[in-house]
Write a protein that binds this DNA or RNA. Structure first.
Lengths: 134, 134
DNA sequence: ACAAAGGTTTACGTTGACGTAAGTAAAACG
DNA sequence: CGTTTTACTTACGTCAACGTAAACCTTTGT
């Protein structure tokens, strides 16, 4: 049962990141692996956090922004004020994300139109298209 | 009719970017304003491109990636090979964008769940919530 | 016993995307 | 006609997010 602990190397392989990255995240207080002597041991909690970190990164959140969002996960006993602040911050983020999705829909539409246009252009020039396997 | 030309300062105000940014984009061949002596004059085409650049940036495209995508807009007379390459590149991008949208939907869902959880937590602690105007 | 494997800290290097400052030149205004 | 305004080039600075190298432990297999 005590074996939900992972070494740094195992983490690297599981999440496809470098050891440097994990140590860097720790230095920025995004992760807090426990220590066995010198060595880091990453818990389930660390893995959950890392998943969120990597997900956040895909959408252009800075590490500092991610750090703030991560706080929300562990505020059970914190002060009310801070909780409320984070709650409001989360609301703002949500609004941003929804706006971002609308824009993304637009970008996808634009690109699809362009592809259709390019397709016609290619047809008119008799360029064979095929899939891509030569 | 020759007045779809804008100075750098006008561009800055219209798009809320700095002059440095516009010159930087030119140096990276993302923009190609015409010159009147030393001075840059930005055409409608430049503005269309800048719109796309800024839009692309919102979704984490690097300037180099954006540059490649921009090529598609002006390939009318180019070689077929290049056209085909770009066409395929656009297809890949499209797939990426759609995947990104799916992930974004997931992030939005997660955040909404968290907000609901935080809301309950706050209710249980009798923290007043209100809108935010106070 | 000892070398290879895996881990550590410390610290300088790098890349992308600009910021910022210095020093000119041209143009528009009072 | 002098002086602000606007713009230009050149070039060094910056910040985030790591990469990379050096120098060092410690365990583990043979």
């Amino acid at each position: 049962m005590t074996e939900d602990l992972m070494t740094i190397r195992q983490m690297c392989e599981a999440f496809d990141v470098t050891a440097r990255t994990l140590r860097f995240y720790e230095s920025k207080e995004l992760l807090a692996p426990i220590r066995q002597g010198q060595k880091r041991l990453f818990t389930k909690k660390d893995r959950a956090r890392l998943t969120l970190i990597l997900r956040g990164k895909k959408f252009g959140f800075s590490l500092e922004e991610i750090r703030q969002l991560l706080e929300m996960y562990h505020m059970q006993d914190q002060q009310a004020t801070q909780l409320k602040t984070t709650y409001e911050l989360a609301q703002k983020r949500l609004a941003q994300l929804i706006a971002q999705r609308e824009e993304l829909d637009q970008v996808i539409q634009d690109l699809q139109d362009q592809i259709a246009w390019g397709y016609e252009l290619m047809r008119s020039k008799n360029i064979s298209i095929k899939s891509s396997d030569e």
